[in-house]
Design a protein around this nucleic acid. Structure first.
Lengths: 245, 245
DNA sequence: AAAATAGTGTCTGTGAGACAGTATCGG
DNA sequence: CCGATACTGTCTCACAGACACTATTTT
């Protein structure tokens, strides 16, 4: 929208900045993403909450597994930077990142003054599985929710570099808070779902088993019937529901 | 902590930045604060939730009332920037700002690429009242909580500049969410309080009257008795409580 | 005494939690 | 048939909400 007015500026499409800003050079800005998915466990019943990690190929902490992230480019929005990072590093698209908070410790990055805006997003397992199969530099991290927040990373790595352990922890708490109140608000599942699928997702997020009946009665008023039935499962076919309003 | 290692760098106490960061100049970064207080109403019983605004003396939107804010300085932490802004512009100290979120619309500030990190904090009325009395460029804004989020600003101003209406709205929702669960978590009140005072604060934050008995029974298990009594009020003296753990 | 506020007793409705039972499918 | 899953009935307990009542102070 500025392209017509910037023919005399050097190589940007934005007008020159007001001189009073020159005295306040900002920090370098990065985005980091905790991308969660529900990974199937050994049997169908025991899925687990997992997050995506990438092997760092350059810069600090080369070789270590870390959250996907990226430096923010000129005039770029944060959500765009997150989407680009996931597309370029992981080949994942169609993401709606949610901002969590800024990590601003002045010494968190030894290369200079870098702040990081942490984001949270969620992706279906099918897409994550496909991305993992195509790229050996992608992996999954798990959080031990029962014990006191211990992590499992590929290659036996114990911690994430920078302050990213904090990001994961913060993100899990954020997820759990919202999954207590509403049925799958971040959409690990598609538009239609059975109560069984929904319960398995909530169990994975909260890290504990939920009572079958209590869960049904708490969720049903927040769901809408579709009069369609699920197929391809053992047992009595379950009704498919939609999320309400 | 870097002062000993930077004798050869120009005029900063930090070491020079790694060259790979040079290609990623970040945005200019500002902080904005929604500072809330409980302002007394016409009679003692009707206090209202209010937020502090300052008259802009320079830059864009000169003369308008806006949230206090400030550009972040080199290697400064966000919370420090907020504290400095409130101290310099409003003479208020002893603040613990809580980060809300980044507002990153690329065109929100016509002077250039500026992001703002919105913060929320709370201050006792006494301090705010003193600051207002000393500085004619300070004022109070009110939110109509009963209707659909309308604002009252000094001089009949209807909206805040930049995206600050959004900040206030976001901040109020954040406050309300936390005040549903816990007794005065942000400490509008001092360490000891009566249940009456507590209820009046919660009513101001939530914008509706609360049932006397229900409120007492919900809050008492989260409070600790002090066996001291409040003085200087009409009626039966109330017991003073402390917040638990 | 009247006004004002503090605090308690008690009834009701709702809903979580727990458990057992019935229904309907695939193999 | 059996195993597995979907769904329903029902009991208990806790607690929010509502109302009335008693208690203790100031004016």
């Amino acid at each position: 929208m500025f392209s017509m007015t910037s023919l005399n500026s050097k190589d940007t499409e934005f007008p020159p900045e007001a001189p009073e800003l020159a005295g306040f050079r900002g920090p370098h800005l990065a985005v980091d993403v905790a991308l969660f998915t529900i990974a199937p466990g050994a049997d169908r019943a025991n899925s687990r909450l997992a997050f995506l990690v990438v092997r760092r190929l350059d810069g600090l902490a080369t070789g270590e597994w870390a959250l996907p992230g990226r430096m923010v480019r000129e005039r770029e929005q944060l959500s765009t930077a997150v989407e680009t990072a996931l597309k370029e590093k992981c080949g994942l698209t169609g993401i709606e990142p949610k901002q969590l908070r800024v990590f601003d410790e002045p010494t968190r990055d030894s290369r200079g003054w870098v702040m990081s805006v942490a984001h949270l997003t969620v992706q279906h397992w099918d897409f994550v599985e496909a991305a993992l199969a195509q790229n050996p530099n992608l992996g999954l991290g798990y959080v031990q929710l029962e014990t006191r927040f211990q992590m499992e990373l590929p290659d036996g790595q114990k911690n994430l570099p920078f302050e990213q352990d904090l990001i994961v922890r913060y993100a899990v708490q954020d997820l759990q808070l919202r999954y207590r109140a509403k049925p799958d608000p971040d959409r690990f599942l598609g538009p239609t779902l059975t109560i069984y699928q929904l319960r398995k997702v909530h169990e994975a997020v909260l890290g504990k088993e939920l009572d079958k009946d209590v869960f049904r009665r708490k969720m049903e008023p927040k769901l809408e019937k579709t009069s369609e039935m699920a197929t391809g499962t053992v047992g009595k076919p379950a009704e498919l529901f939609k999320r309400k309003s």
